[in-house]
Design a protein around this nucleic acid. Structure first.
Lengths: 114, 114
DNA sequence: TATCATTGCTACGTCTATCGTAGTATCAGC
DNA sequence: GCTGATACTACGATAGACGTAGCAATGATA
């Protein structure tokens, strides 16, 4: 991969989710809170965006879902676990991000724009 | 502005174009080449993306178009000039980029992802 | 002189991540 | 009994990006 398209800069929600699933499975509501916390309240993913991301990630084989095993209370929860393909995809997105950032920043003025 | 949405990370083509119009008016084909050059061939904007960006930028009052004055040869060219509102918008996008980058990078591993 | 690449742009339709709105259901605490 | 937090699902709209195609003029090349 030696060139980027503009549209790739979209779709980093998937990358964020994979990052948060890296060490242990998790589920929608928890991921949502962790995104808010890790971003220091600067970013709150929308519920619909989050759940449609899960669907896409699973369809692409980057995560696997399983039902809550210890169904403590009547609450149904769907957990997601990252797959090896998901880890690979995450690595590619990290590399892509580095490249994208390099390109975009050639067009960005750090100061308020002279 | 203290929080970002995911979708904002899209749409930096407009920002790149405004950057290239900052000092002097220009037109489609030239902008296209300058993007390729400045990005060191890492990014080539698609023609349709470029011209639809011009349309949007003009509709939003961020650029003004005018016809080639010295129509040297039969070639028609539409030049675009950045407006004060365009400069303002560019500054906002630069600030937004800084914020977006900060957030995204909390989810990106610099190394190949452990 | 015929042909091809480059220049410069327009029209039209498709794709898809995001997001708005809305609805369902459980549970804890007051 | 009601509110707020938890945990999702369904459905449709939006809009930036992009694929494909076409048109017209110029310059270089054979």
């Amino acid at each position: 991969m030696s060139s980027i398209s503009s549209d790739i800069i979209r779709g980093y929600n998937d990358t964020m989710i994979l990052y948060l699933l890296w060490d242990a499975p998790s589920y929608g509501y928890e991921i949502s809170k962790r995104i808010r916390n890790l971003s220091e309240e600067k970013y709150a993913i929308k519920e619909t965006t989050l759940y449609s991301a899960f669907t896409r990630l699973e369809k692409n084989g980057f995560v696997e879902s399983f039902a809550d095993s210890d169904m403590v209370n009547g609450k149904r929860r769907t957990y997601y676990r990252i797959t090896e393909q998901g880890r690979q995809y995450y690595r590619e997105k990290c590399a892509e991000w580095t490249l994208t950032k390099e390109v975009v920043e050639k067009f960005i003025r750090q100061d308020g724009g002279m």
